[in-house]
Design a protein around this nucleic acid. Sequence first.
DNA 1: TTGTAGGCGTTATCAT
DNA 2: ATGATAACGCCTACAA
Lengths: 345, 345
Amino acid sequence: MLKLRPMALGSNPKLADVARAAGVSLATASRALAQPDLVRAKTCERVRDAVNMLGYVPHGAARALATRRSKTIGAVFPPLDNPIFAKATHALSRELSQAGYTLLLATHDYDPGAELLATRALIERGVDGLVLVGMDHDPGLYRLLERASLPYEITWSLDHGGYHHCVGVSHRLASVHVAQHLLDLGHREFAVIAGETAHNDRARDRLAGAREALASRGIGLPSSRVREAPFAVAAGKAALAGLLADAPGFTAVICGNDPLAIGALLECRARGITVPDQLSIAGFDDVDLAAELTPGLTTVRVPSAEIGARAGKRLLARLAGKRVRRMEEIKAPLIVRGTTGPAPA
Amino acid sequence: MLKLRPMALGSNPKLADVARAAGVSLATASRALAQPDLVRAKTCERVRDAVNMLGYVPHGAARALATRRSKTIGAVFPPLDNPIFAKATHALSRELSQAGYTLLLATHDYDPGAELLATRALIERGVDGLVLVGMDHDPGLYRLLERASLPYEITWSLDHGGYHHCVGVSHRLASVHVAQHLLDLGHREFAVIAGETAHNDRARDRLAGAREALASRGIGLPSSRVREAPFAVAAGKAALAGLLADAPGFTAVICGNDPLAIGALLECRARGITVPDQLSIAGFDDVDLAAELTPGLTTVRVPSAEIGARAGKRLLARLAGKRVRRMEEIKAPLIVRGTTGPAPA
DNA sequence: TTGTAGGCGTTATCAT
DNA sequence: ATGATAACGCCTACAA
């Protein structure tokens, strides 16, 4: 079954080998591949043939060294088992590859230190640009970017300071809409299951938005009614269980993201609490699953694939010397489905 | 003419600048960073200071050119919105970064042509090794790898031919176990919602395993009872609806992966079909959500994070000159939860 | 322990 | 249209 391959040969063919095989100079071979218009058609063809014959594959490092461009974009992301990040990564990768760029990906576990290290590694690898998530980063990270004078895009969050290039949504505003929706349904007793707010400006903004909307109608949110939980369905279940045990009496739960909301929903189902009759639940992100559940999950649609794609497009445009708006806000509409309903009488 | 180029303002400091600032030669500066043991401690420190002072970041391309190593590993994956791939990617990335390697990620939509192109791009970028998913690839892909004599790992699938390095599970065998479990519960009328089998050996093996187990007990699987569906909860719902409409009468559904199974489950819930009393449902992969549902989803545990981590470890070991077993099989046990039960009388 | 110099594979700037 | 050759930034024998 195992076939032996006679062809051994030490190293891979280089452009010089191609040139020799085609009977042209190194420079001509290079041009034939990069700027065919500058080379006689016939010569071009000879070079191409030689390439195929030898199985020549360009040496990116050498090219990067000479051109000072790696055709590579770095992305530093939280764990991709959050589907929103997976989607964005995929869309970004797709966008980049269409333009001949490749994605260099680093992931971290919401740890600013690790994030800084990873970013450094990417810069060392010579990325032409960088995609980051959110605004919360080690100060050293921004310094590093500054010094490297590397174009980068902040995703998900918006820098209202107008300094960073960014493409994202207003988490605060969307969260206000969620709370208002529930208030309009007559709810007065709320609980919140927030994502972990440390090192996460999105989670903080979402929590702040909810607080603010409630406060503006004179409704407080005691700390016993607020829980932070790591992103995960299981954590959502546990959080709701905890709230029910420690501070019952609420009729609506605002969740920091969909997995938490789905967890809360499953916990209700397991306990026989009917949603939305006895309890309303709202999520955030509009994960695929949200629409498939019965009842469907009321949530905020954050178009994560679009964010990834836009970040890629913007970066590519900037690398091509075009100008782009510094800040690109994407709408995040409230999607009302079945898990929210009138407050029980 | 010889011109002294003072460090340009925009340009980043190079090792030569560090050396000058530290008052040592280029070679010493290089060694101080790479092999500090070969350099006097005091000198080392001077170099380090210079590095910090100047904010020096090594130029990876130059290093790669000189050492013929990029400290970069490429991975070619299907869309990461399938959580199993997201988990594997994260684990892989984590494993690599611990060893100073970075992950170069390419994703494709189950298209062999695109996969080939992406792989080529990674090789051009100078990856030191590659991680692939499954055995189904464009023949040109294997040729490319051969010529580049690049170490690579096939993940998820096992090459029983013993040719490729691989780390994965036996999808066929696990699928046999699923079918046997249902047979043991008394089921005789089956339906299958398979993943799309084109360009996907895992989906084919899973389907084949189920067929085989049923056949070995004299039970056939008419084509009207088999449906292929793209990976997605929505597709699972639709597939079950289709089966119910076209070929009712089955008491158990074997699904090609968990999202499909969850879709089937949700469809049942929406129609008032009780699971497992009226219908048993089994999945494959053991996604996080599977355990959180009530009833929990009976499925096969495929440790995707472990696969990613192992692939990384194996590749790193090989790059370090160690030998590893060509084939590493990971157990994929059946996890019996609540969605499967005795066949209705 | 430290320095000198050649080379890694490609592009780009000159000539021709 | 094509060719010679100097960068590009770093590593690493080989010398000192």
